[in-house]
């Protein structure tokens, strides 16, 4: 099942048009589900960029959800500025925080980074619950989001979801992306070949903070309420891990599929309160054990179909046994 490039582009454009026109034909419930799908898709995509491509398994992504949400809350509620100001400021605040956090956290590698990022997120949660400026653990009501109609929300979520896919796709198609993948496959060799390891990882971390922060801001703006224990909950990251693992880690399509599965499954499991996270954990566990590449990875192995391929195809039919020349340039 091989598709040519024009067909892939046509499929993508068709899907985009259908999605853009959804407010015309979809029911309210359907549109609400898609809003969630797009928001979660952007978060999953960013965790995938970190864990699947840059090799940074972060369990602290919830801090950007929290900081993004709180920035929107403070800007729109405490300072009474219009909501778009909040949504513009939030990702930059997150990126700045990520830059500061990266100073200690990038000294760690592997599992140390994983738990280090979690510690930072937990410290951030405790800091917010002790901070009088954000009303301790009581939280905020964000009333600025009430003026948004369903269509507005949908378009915002759509831009965020599609935007995150595009950002990852474009980033991976550039020299920077080659560097990321070279680094993931073999850090030592890629370093010798001239990949700036620290800079590459930092860029991934900053991109993920930017978009995750935006998604967190939008999520809390739509909810109309923010509270530190929920905003900085590890459950956000659990969700991201679930989506990426089940969809396929290290693929762009993985988090997209994962977001659909997650949101629909969650809608279904709402009928059984309390067991949803249990089932998500169990499914993720089974997938890691049986199909470590996730559903998309399994499909790719079987059929070779990739909608958003970031690979470079080599024109020459056969190459002698020497390393690819592409990594020389990075």
């Amino acid at each position: 099942m091989k598709f040519n490039k024009p067909i892939k582009v046509a499929i993508s454009v068709l899907i985009l048009i259908v999605l853009l026109l959804m407010p015309k034909w979809g029911s309210d419930r359907f549109i609400n589900i898609f809003i969630l799908i797009f928001l979660y898709m952007s978060m999953g995509q960013m965790w995938n960029l970190l864990a699947g491509y840059a090799g940074l398994v972060s369990l602290g992504q919830q801090m950007f959800i929290g900081i993004g949400g709180y920035t929107v809350a403070v800007v729109c509620q405490s300072y009474n500025l219009p909501l778009w100001v909040g949504l513009i400021v939030a990702p930059f605040v997150c990126t700045l925080c990520a830059l500061i956090i990266s100073l200690p956290i990038f000294k760690m590698s592997g599992d140390f980074f994983t738990i280090g990022s979690w510690i930072v997120a937990e410290a951030m949660l405790l800091f917010f619950t002790n901070w009088s400026f954000v009303k301790y653990g009581f939280g905020f009501t964000i009333s600025a989001g009430r003026v948004l109609t369903l269509t507005h929300r949908y378009i915002m979520a759509l831009i965020l979801g599609i935007g995150s896919v595009l950002v990852v796709y474009i980033a991976l198609r550039t020299k920077f992306g080659l560097g990321i993948m070279a680094m993931r496959d073999n850090e030592g060799v890629s370093k010798v070949r001239g990949v700036k390891i620290y800079r590459t990882k930092l860029n991934c971390f900053l991109i993920s903070a930017f978009i995750t922060g935006l998604a967190g801001g939008a999520m809390h703006l739509f909810d109309g309420y923010i509270q530190p224990y929920a905003a900085f909950s590890i459950d956000w990251t659990v969700t991201m891990v679930f989506m990426v693992i089940i969809g396929g880690i290290g693929t762009i399509e993985g988090p997209i599929l994962g977001a659909f599965i997650y949101v629909f499954l969650r809608q279904y499991l709402l009928n059984f309160p309390g067991v949803s996270m249990l089932i998500f954990g169990a499914i993720a566990l089974i997938i890691i054990l049986l199909a470590p590449k996730g559903i998309v990875g399994l499909l790719q192995d079987r059929t070779g179909f990739e909608l958003f391929s970031v690979r470079r195809s080599i024109k020459a039919p056969k190459l002698p046994d020497k390393p690819e020349s592409a990594s020389q340039n990075t």
Binding site: D111, G281, A282, A284, L285, I288
Partner: peptide, 10 residues
Amino acid sequence: LLVMFGVSII
């Protein structure tokens, strides 16, 4: 790491 994370969630 992810397997143990799954165990912890469960």
